[in-house]
Amino acid sequence: MTDQPFVPADFTVPRALDAEGFRLEPLGEQHNEADHAAWTGSIAHIRATPGFGDGTWPPAEGMDLDRNLADLRRHAADFEARRGFTYSVRAVPGDAVVGCVYIYPDHERPGATDVSSWVRADRAELDAPLHRAVSAWLATTWPFAEVTYAPR
């Protein structure tokens, strides 16, 4: 682990990304039930998504809402402390939770950023557009020199 901040102190962390068919917003406690329903109904699909091949998440056995809430609170704390940034993917139109984007430092390669994302199985058509939009956003808005984000 490095003592360097993940993003510079003077960098304003984006609170949203609006794109065709979806919107990103910081993941928080308010998403618990919708987030839980989104991923628990798509475990096999998410595990088959590029970037989730290690088989550790999502847990095959699922988890209860309390454990999911603890996980969301951890991600929200990381966001506020600028240690990592997790965004809920919301459908547009509407606001159903349809996925998630994780932006964290790569702890094996100092200075590099590791990004992963998933969408619900029933919204699989959003996977490639989400990847394209997030990739462009990272390249134009964020201060990262090196990003690893499994291609689609």
Rank of each mutant, 00 (worst) to 15 (best):
Y102K: 01
A150E: 13
S117Q: 14
D64I: 09
V89C: 02
A9Y: 03
A112K: 12
V147R: 14
T113Q: 06
I46V: 11
W137F: 13
W142Y: 09
F144H: 15
R82H: 11
P110G: 09
A81W: 07
H31I: 13
G55M: 01
S116T: 13
A128V: 15
A76V: 02
D3I: 13
A96Q: 09
E61C: 02
T148W: 15
V89Q: 00
W57T: 03
G53A: 12
P50H: 04
L17R: 03
R15Y: 02
G84E: 08
W137L: 04
D35G: 06
R67N: 10
P50A: 03
E29C: 01
I43K: 12
Y102F: 14
T2C: 07
P5L: 05
F52G: 01
D10S: 08
V134T: 03
E146H: 15
I103L: 12
L24D: 00
L126M: 14
R132G: 04
H36T: 10
E80P: 00
R90Q: 05
P110Y: 07
D78H: 15
N68W: 08
D35W: 15
Y104E: 15
D10Y: 06
T86Q: 11
P5E: 05
D35Q: 05
G94H: 04
D64M: 05
A19L: 01
F144P: 04
D3K: 12
Y149A: 08
V97F: 00
H107C: 13
A34D: 13
P5Q: 04
Q4M: 11
A150I: 10
L130W: 09
T148I: 12
H75E: 08
I43Q: 10
T141G: 06
R23L: 00
V134H: 04
N32Y: 03
G21Q: 07
D3V: 15
D95M: 06
Q30R: 14
P8Y: 05
L138C: 13
N68G: 03
Y87W: 10
R47K: 08
D66T: 13
G53N: 12
F52T: 03
R109G: 00
T148P: 08
T148A: 15
Q30W: 03
R109W: 09
R73G: 03
T2E: 13
P143I: 12
R15F: 03
L130V: 14
A19D: 02
P105H: 07
D35E: 11
D95L: 02
T40P: 06
A96M: 05
I43V: 15
A19F: 01
